[in-house]
Amino acid sequence: MAFIEIEHLEKTYQAKSGDTEALKDVNFSIEEGEIFGIIGLSGAGKSTLVRCLNLLEKPSGGRIVIGGQELLKLTDRELRLARRDIGMIFQHFNLLMQRTVLDNVCFPLEIAGVRKRQARVEAVTYLEQVGLADKALAYPAQLSGGQKQRVAIARVLASKPRVLLCDEATSALDPQTTQSILQLLKEINERYRITMVVITHEMSVVEQICDRVAVLEYGRIVESGRTREVFDAPRTDAAKRLIYTKAYSETQSEGSGI
């Protein structure tokens, strides 16, 4: 059994104006330590999909098994514990603005019940890993976008996750900063064998770090395979559109996926 198993995942948003099917019978599996990309145009359901993986969004049906645990069958308490194993980083970083960088990294340790002193010592080591130890006492508002994402990465590492969900994590960053963040993610993947799910509309991101990729269109996975293979010989129209208009899609900046 793979480390992450998604079976028949469905998500329907109900509204007075009619139901919207955001995800339709989505199936895939990810091996431990893999970096798995999910690409698609805006509105394809990428964000909904990744947010279902830690139940920020409640699926309407299907099964989500991560590390042998079936998420939809957990109690609230079990789910909170499971979430510590499933980290997430966001397009807009989502740091606590009233806390220092160090205290942001301490936050998951507080949740885990680590003593303050111990938490600080540990937090510093994570900040060192993302190259921001010198900013420990700064506030997020004083940092650049790339630095904020590094803090978010240090924070998520502090909860020692086995999975990292990246929801458009580089979409708000310039190309150069994107490169450095991708490199950092790659390092983390190799060092801790953290399984990663990378949601993006930037093809170059997928090309650079993903082992495998799935193409999402109108809430369905229309194509998936090894990144190289999909990029070299896309079979479906959706994949061709995404890959052949790569240059175009990169100049597009996508709005908030939240």
Binding site: N54, I86, N94, L96, P108, E110, L165, I258
Partner: peptide, 20 residues
């Protein structure tokens, strides 16, 4: 909302979310 979601994704309980 994003900050609250980040806390939820880190496994924070309701008390932590309210106070912190």
């Amino acid at each position: 909302r994003g900050v609250i979601e980040a806390a939820v994704s880190l496994g924070a309980g309701i008390r932590t979310i309210i106070f912190q």
